[in-house]
Structure formats: C-alpha cells, structure tokens
Computed example of a mutant assay.
Amino acid sequence: MLGIYPEGTRSPDGRLYRGKTGVARMAIEAAVPIIPVAMIDTHIAQPIGQRVPSRHPIGVRIGEPLQIAAYAGRQDDREALREPTDTVMQAIAALSGQEYVDRDAAQYKHQARA
C-alpha cells in the first residue's frame, strides 16, 4: 500500500485542486485499485509555513476502492490517466466536503505570488 497526495502540493486555500496523473499511472502499472482517502483538519494541525505540527486531532475518511482494470495497459495514454485521476479527486471531494477546483494548485500558487 502506498499513500500519495494526488495534488502534488499543499492546498493554498483549503480547496481541493486537480490531481496529478501519477496516482493513476502507478495504479494502472501495478494493476491495483485506488482507494480515495480524505484527511480532515490537516490545515489546522500544520498550517502552511509551520514546521512542526500542532497537537490537533486529524480526521481520516476512507472511500470505496476505485477499480481501474478498464485502463490496463494504457498508462501512457493521457486521457486514460486523466479519467481515473478526476474520479479519485471527485471521491476525495465528496469525502472531505472540500470545494473542488479544476486547476493545478502549484500553478495557482505560482500565479498568486507574481
């Protein structure tokens, strides 16, 4: 089992941003399902810029496994990677209650700094 944050970076504003397709690529290559997991209140336990986490309870919500067998052998197909990635992000949004933004978080952060 491997845990990965599909966004590739911390959310700059608490919303859930578009996932990177690496999660789908790894799952397709390994022929395993993706299990969506939402982490709750991590922004309170360790705000951006804080080096050491505060003592604050963190919630974890685990969704149903997402089967990706239909994408077998398509780990180099951009569309085949985007579809399960978007599905897992929608599942995380439903589990967490976060607003979903169909935009790359790293690009958003970079533009906000400029």
Rank of each mutant, 00 (worst) to 15 (best):
Q98A: 14
S96V: 02
R82M: 11
P33W: 12
I68M: 00
M39A: 07
M89Q: 05
P57D: 11
T21S: 03
R55Y: 06
G8W: 09
T21L: 00
P12K: 06
A24H: 03
T85D: 00
T87V: 09
P47D: 05
H56N: 10
E64Y: 10
P47S: 05
L95Y: 07
A31K: 13
G63A: 13
A72W: 04
Y100E: 08
H43G: 12
Y17Q: 03
P57T: 09
R82E: 14
G73N: 11
P12Y: 07
P65G: 04
I48M: 10
G19E: 00
E83V: 08
H43F: 07
I58N: 03
T9Y: 05
V23P: 07
A27P: 02
G19F: 00
P12V: 07
P57I: 09
Q90R: 13
Y5M: 13
Q67A: 14
D41G: 02
I34V: 14
P53I: 12
D76E: 12
T87E: 15
E7T: 14
A27D: 07
T9W: 08
R25I: 01
L2E: 06
L66F: 07
L66Y: 05
G97E: 07
H43R: 13
A91M: 09
R25W: 05
I62L: 04
V37T: 02
T87R: 15
G14F: 01
T85G: 00
Q67T: 11
R103H: 11
M1N: 06
R82W: 13
D77A: 03
G49S: 09
R55F: 12
M1V: 12
I62C: 02
I4F: 10
I92E: 08
I4G: 07
L2F: 14
L81N: 05
G59R: 12
D102M: 07
D76R: 13
Q111W: 09
I34S: 06
D102K: 12
Q75Y: 15
A45I: 08
R25H: 10
V52F: 14
G97L: 09
E64W: 10
E99C: 09
D102S: 14
G22Q: 00
P84M: 02
G63Y: 11
R25M: 15
H110P: 05
D76A: 12
G22N: 01
T87M: 14
A80W: 01
I44R: 13
S11I: 03
R78C: 03
A72L: 08
A72K: 15
Y17D: 03
Y17N: 04
H110R: 15
V37N: 03
T9C: 06
A94M: 04
S54H: 14
R25K: 15
R78T: 15
D76Q: 13
L66I: 15
R55P: 01
D104F: 10
E7W: 10
R10I: 13
D76Y: 11
G63W: 10
I4C: 11
T21I: 00
R103K: 10
E7M: 13
D76F: 12
L16K: 01
P53Y: 09
L81E: 06
A80I: 00
R82D: 12
V60N: 04
I28T: 01
V60C: 15
H56D: 02
R15I: 00
D102F: 08
T21K: 04
R18D: 09
S54V: 04
Q107C: 06
R82S: 06
I4H: 07
R82L: 09
A31M: 03
V60S: 01
P33G: 08
D77K: 06
R51F: 13
A80E: 01
